[in-house]
Structure formats: structure tokens, C-alpha cells
Design a protein around this nucleic acid. Sequence first.
DNA 1: CTGAAAGCGCTTACAG
DNA 2: CTGAAAGCGCTTACAG
Lengths: 341, 341
Amino acid sequence: MATIGDVARVAGVSRSTASYALSGKRSISPAVRQRVQAAVAELGYTPNAGARALATSQTNVLGLLARFLDDEFAPAMLEYILGVTHMARRLGYDTLLVSEEDGVRALHRLARSRKVDGFVLLNVAENDQRLAALEEVGHPAALVGLPGGDAGVDVFDLDFEAGGRLMVDRMHGLGHRELILVSQPEHVLERGGAYVWRLANAVRDRAEALGVRVHAYHGAAAQPDIGADLTRFLDAHPHATGLLLNNEAAAAALPSVLGARGLSAPGDLSVIGRYSDDFARTFSLPFSAIDSAADRLGRSAVERLVGRISGQIPAAEAATVELLPPMIIDRGSLAPPRSDP
Amino acid sequence: MATIGDVARVAGVSRSTASYALSGKRSISPAVRQRVQAAVAELGYTPNAGARALATSQTNVLGLLARFLDDEFAPAMLEYILGVTHMARRLGYDTLLVSEEDGVRALHRLARSRKVDGFVLLNVAENDQRLAALEEVGHPAALVGLPGGDAGVDVFDLDFEAGGRLMVDRMHGLGHRELILVSQPEHVLERGGAYVWRLANAVRDRAEALGVRVHAYHGAAAQPDIGADLTRFLDAHPHATGLLLNNEAAAAALPSVLGARGLSAPGDLSVIGRYSDDFARTFSLPFSAIDSAADRLGRSAVERLVGRISGQIPAAEAATVELLPPMIIDRGSLAPPRSDP
DNA sequence: CTGAAAGCGCTTACAG
DNA sequence: CTGAAAGCGCTTACAG
């Protein structure tokens, strides 16, 4: 493998000149620059990452800490991951994907070994153990998911409260006065999945303010339980005309459940979900939904993180919380309630 | 951040002794070893990865080259990825996830910069551009997916031919004599998704040998097209009693399609799919299926790759092709055909 | 059983 | 505008 020494020799300059010619950190005569570039091309030179990391204390690698939970919807995680890897690459970074259980250990290991320049944490919980570790190690970081207290680092998330309000407003505007809300399982919530109650509380408050009845439930996160749950909820509230879903599995199961009852949306029931457009396409979900914008959140987190690492965002600049305004992607499952004869 | 020099000073030994005490590469008096270990614990010492990589030419990082295709089923990829990251970590490696379009470029970049010790290639095509690049760079590698020619590196895949035979044998054994096969879209095949025709051809040959009629189709990879496709296939062959699916989207869409027709499996139609258990659970698919064993394939690939990297598998040992025997996970969608009155 | 020293391949003050 | 040299933090022959 060619080294900078080889490049220097071929170009007939010193190693430092070769290095500067490549980094552009000091002015170089055009002739020399040309010779160096030619040598690089001829030798297929690429700097040794370890040597460069040792010399500069920069790795150009980001640590991506995913957190997979048994009772959550794994495929959704992939979109965040791809958002992160794509933006990272675009900005000149590679991504170390960490899926191990013990995120705290991983953070310490990667930070202390200087394997990465910063971290993106996915699926951040209300009371996330990893935040304390993050503070200890002192690496730059960005979170996807809004934690409870002050994180001390940049945070990106969908505005789930606004999402809850938006769901109710839309239904109310169409004339619906009795709704069913199906959230993620209580396990998710107890474990710190704050987005569950943030949306649910917002739905409740807004509904109350508007005089809309809401029956709020937690549903299972997988089949066949969630199908049975949905059937039960629909049985219990025959006069409900709108269904709000903050639970991917419920959305995926709904077509069969409606089919089995001979119902269709929006004819018999208006439906709003909350999931990604990708998810909708993959599983043919014909329901209007608030876009979870996973890809975009991943990208934004990386953009900001790299800004911190590179110093483009001054260290003094306080950490921000960026809550993405929810947007409903219309797939035709919303209409005024059927006026019963 | 503590260095080996700090450890040496605190332990009262030389840097080389500290290093050897940690690596165990030469014998160390128990007393010294103790002091070094105590110093490590006290200082929270972790070796600097860049420095170690520079000194040893080993990074303890694996490059994972995923390949996401528009018309393939992305969530399935996640299982391979997790199989890889989990086994890698267990063996002391981190995983660099590469999702960029141009896999060939990425291979060169990572190999030449010595950022990784070896590569796992996912979703390998019949005629995969990345294989030539792999040979050029000379890094150890393992493939998930069987390419056309001789890859020159270790290959892991599901035995799709045996899978095709197994599907037909099972249906035939139950008494079915007319089947419909729904494969991935032709795009997938043309692009080099050899597993599509490997399974399809095996189905055709076995069926012919057993005197079973098979209507073979390609179906779309997403909704709503795949739903329409399925409906069309079922309409065209009202006497078919068995359905073989080598197409995840088709499996996901089938419950609604059957529901709409008032059909159920296996009462009206026996069904065998080919997807992972995880997929079945997530989407509540009630169909018996050949397990795609993504997690296991990812793990096996890493195990072998690390064996090559570490030299535990001698370089002289020829590359192997490991085809996993297919296994049907029974979910109750298989029964003898209804004896029409 | 242990230490002093060279070397891995870069970058970057320092000097001219 | 360019070069000689130090230094990043490890590992590992070499020497005792």
C-alpha cells in the first residue's frame, strides 16, 4: 500500500510538502501541486486512517447507537439508520453501527479507544441511561428522540404533542365526535417511550377542549394480539367514527380487521396513523398518516453533529431541541362521518 | 485520556512491560501483572484504536456492505445486518455500515485507507460488480448471497434450489396437483437476484417430475400492485389449491386478498412462503414458510470472516460455499386440498 | 522476567 | 514557497 512517503518520492518533494499539497493547508506552487496529484493518482494513494487518526485525533467515523427493543417495531429503525449513514457519508464520515444491548458500555469503549468522533443515539428514552455516559465521555453527540430532562446535547424528534393535536383537529374538522386512540403497548411507555404519552396526552387535552370523546387504549405491538385488540376496541365503541393509531403494528393489522368486519375507510371509519411513508408503501397501508420522518431526523442529527465536531458550530452554542412539525400524508382515509339514517 | 505510558508510570514498569502484561504475549511476573491491571483500572485505560491499528495493521473493524434496492424488501435487510453486528461484537469487532450506492468505490476507499480488516457483502448478485473490486483489494471477505461464477471468497446463502423442491414436495405430499408460484419482480431477477430463478427453476423441475402443474408468475414488490397481481393470479387459476410465495410483499398482502375473496388458508388454499420468522411475527403472517435465516447467515459469514482475518483458518484453505438447508416453519397454512363435492 | 528503542504513517509547528 | 524533524500512542524485535 502506498504511503505519503511514496507519493513524495514520486513527486520529488518532501513528505510535508506532499501532505500540505493534499490538505491545502498552506500555499503550494501549482507545479508541485500537479506533480503531487499525479503521484497520488499513479500510486492509488489513500491516507492510512489509523495514522491520520493518531496524528489528528480525528477518525472521520461516527458511532451510531441503535436500541432494538423486543416489543417495538424493528423495521422502522432501519430508516433512521439509513438517514444517518447517508448524511454521514455525504459529509465525509463513515458510520460504526452499534447494536449491542449495553449502550453505556459501548459508549465508553468507543469513546475511550477514540474509535469515533461523535455519537448519534437512536430511540432515546425519557430517562435514558446513555445520557449520563455521554456526559462522562464528553464526545459530541446528537439524539434522535426527546429525553425527559435537559440532555445537554442536540435533540431531534417529531413533535408528538403537535401530532396528537393535529390528529384531533383534523377529525374534529371533518365532524367526528367520538374517536378511538390506539397507542403502543404500555411496556413501551414504562420503559421510557415518552412519545407514546406525549401524543396520547395531547390527544386527550385537545379532544376535551373541542368536546370530542376519545377512548384511549394501548395495543399489542405484534400479531395476532394487536388484531384481537383492535377488534375488541371496535366492538366496545360502535359509535366511534374515527380511529387514531400511534402503533405501527396496529396500522399493519387494520386492513385485515376491517376486512373481516366488512368495513372500509373512510366509508365506515376515518383513520389517521403515525408511521413513515416508506412503511406505508411497503405494507400497502391505505391510511392517511403523520409522517414519522425517520430519514429526515437521522439526517438532521448527523448534520448538526458534524457541525459540532468540525467546530463550525461553536462549542459555546447551546444545545438545541428541534421538534419537527407533524405533517399528515393524505392517503384518502379521512372523510366526514357517515350520517346514520 | 490515559495512555500506555500513564499505565506504565503508575504501575512502575516500562511501557513495553505494560503492553505485554495486557496482551499476554510474553510471560510476566504475577506481581507486575497485578500492578499493571490495577493501573489500568485506576486510570480507565483503553488502548487508542488508531495507534494500535497503525502499529499492528489490524483495526478490529469489519466493513459491512449493504445493498438497498428500490424494488426489494428493505426491512429484511435489517436482520442480516443485526446478525452481522451481533456476531462481530461477540468476536471483538466493530462494524462499519456502508450503505452508499457505489459499493465498488466504498470497497476501495475502506481497503486502501485500512479502515477495516475485512468485508461482509450483503445481497450479492449473480454478477456482482463488487467481486472484482474485492479481488483487487485483497482483503478477506465473506458473501451473503451466492454469485454466479467462482467468487474466490467464502459464500453463505440459503439453498434456494432445495427450497423450491421442498415447497413442491410438501404440497405434493399433501395431495396438491395444481400450484401457483409468485416470485419477486422480474427486475430483481434481471439485476442479478439469482435466488429468484434458482427457486423458480427447482419448483418447475420438481413439479414436472412429480406430475404437478405449476403456474409461475412474477409479482410486484409493493402495494397496491402486488395485491392486484395476486387477485389476478387467483382468478386465472380457480382450480389451483396451493400457493408458493418467494416474494415478501406478496406474503404481506395475501391476508387482505384472501379476506376480500372470502377465502382462508388452509381451508381453501394451502400456502407456503419464504421469509424470516421475525417477518412473520411482525406482520402476523399466518402462513407456513421457509425460514430465510437472515440472522444465521449473517452470523456465519462473520464467524468465517473473522477466522480468515485472525489466521485461524489458514489462508491456503480454499473458499467454501455454504448453502443452508431450507426449513419450513409450520404456521398451519398447509393441509390436503379440499375435496370438491 | 524486564527495559530501551525503533517503527507503523501521518500532520504540523519550526525554520529558512 | 519548501524541508527536516518531532510527535501522536501503540507494538515488538533486540538486548540483557
